[in-house]
């Protein structure tokens, strides 16, 4: 096993392990912390895929921003420690069965499909290509997102203001 491959397996183990912890733990604060490591693992996966810009974005937005927001949200909404998540093994059975069936379907489809493969390339910066794509071929989705963000911000403000007023009254 080459050095790169062994690192890859290590990262995969970290991602899956912490991911499983997020799902199975009963303590929501611990779950949120474990999620940081899952996100970091995914960022590392992007590095292996030569997607440096995506890795940086994943690190900044998910590893940093989203998890911090999540933790703040959890800590501010559950003032009393010990909000336990319910895990009912009996109810989990059908979920496991469906998830298992889904996994088999993905696996058998993925294994035999002729994927449109790209030969491994030397690591090169992708930011420039992404930047020029956003300004040329993908200008429309970029602008769509800017309008979307405006609308969503207004919606978020409405929701926040409303719940604030409800608490006040």
């Amino acid at each position: 096993m080459s050095f790169e491959a062994s690192i890859w397996y290590l990262v995969a183990l970290l991602t899956l392990g912490t991911g499983a912890y997020v799902v199975f733990t009963r303590n929501i604060v611990r779950a949120a912390f474990a999620l940081v490591f899952t996100f970091l693992g995914v960022a590392a996966m992007y590095v292996f895929l030569r997607a440096d810009f995506l890795a940086a974005a994943q690190l900044l937005i998910y590893g940093g921003g989203i998890t911090v927001l999540l933790l703040f949200g959890v800590m501010l909404t559950h003032r009393h420690e010990g909000m336990e998540l319910k895990l009912d093994p009996l109810k989990a059975l059908p979920a496991v069965a469906i998830a298992g069936g889904f996994f088999v379907a993905i696996w058998s489809a993925a294994r035999r499909a002729d994927w449109d493969l790209v030969a491994p390339v030397e690591p090169v910066g992708t930011s420039e290509a992404i930047g020029s794509a956003i300004m040329t071929t993908h200008l429309l989705p970029f602008e769509e997102i800017s309008v979307l963000l405006l609308v969503v911000l207004i919606g978020a403000l409405f929701v926040a203001r409303r719940s604030g007023e409800e608490e006040g009254s």
Binding site: P141, E144, L148, V151, G155, F158, V159, R162, E165, E166
Partner: peptide
Amino acid sequence: VSIFISVEFVSLASYVMAGFVRG
């Protein structure tokens, strides 16, 4: 890409509109 963004556009706006009655 644009299909997904437009679908999300409609969905995100709808989520808030569904809950628009105060209290």
